[in-house]
């Protein structure tokens, strides 16, 4: 069966069982590495992507359900050569240990910043609550999101963000 999905602005027509979770389509058909398999149960957020601007678990999203909707993955935010704002902030803060959770963290944070460009620390923590990190990189992830907020506002030099 053929399904057409729009990922990071590009359309892809795929011959795939519509029940296939989006995660496997992104990884195996479109060869995008950002979304990760962590649990397949909607419990960890490693697979987080944006669907029509909202953060969603790609591991539990049948690809047939997102035909024609806007899907954004971490690859859509920037590349190693031209990183997006959050990616720059994570790089600056060296906010990764194993990094397996990080693409999902960035996508969840991006959804917050899209909706609220100036969240406070409590709002960031509450929003990020869904996603798990086992390496204990939380403090740096929070710093990175705060840094992205500051970078965007441009009112503070990036240096001043470190608490």
């Amino acid at each position: 069966m053929s399904v057409t999905i729009t990922v990071n602005g590009a359309d892809h027509a795929l011959d795939v069982d519509p029940s296939t979770p989006l995660l496997y389509v992104l990884r195996d058909d479109l060869e995008l590495n950002g979304a990760k398999y962590g649990c397949g149960l909607g419990q960890c957020g490693a697979c987080t992507v944006q669907i029509d601007g909202k953060p969603a678990f790609s591991c539990l999203t049948p690809v047939g359900a997102v035909a024609g909707r806007r899907i954004r993955t971490v690859e859509g935010l920037g590349s190693a050569g031209a990183p997006g704002l959050l990616q720059q902030a994570f790089e600056k803060e060296q906010a990764a240990q194993c990094g397996y959770c990080i693409a999902g963290m960035i996508m969840r944070a991006q959804a917050l910043l899209d909706r609220n460009p100036d969240p406070d620390d409590a709002q960031i923590r509450a929003h990020m609550q869904t996603n798990l990190c086992r390496c204990g990189t939380h403090m740096r992830i929070l710093r990175a999101v705060r840094r992205a907020v500051a970078l965007r506002k441009g009112t503070q030099s990036a240096q001043e963000v470190r608490p």
Binding site: P18, S19, T20, P21, L41, L60, P62, V63, G64, A65
Partner: peptide, 14 residues
Amino acid sequence: PGGAALFAGACAGC
């Protein structure tokens, strides 16, 4: 059938 496909991808894993 549509509901079945959604169930398979979204619900069956649990």
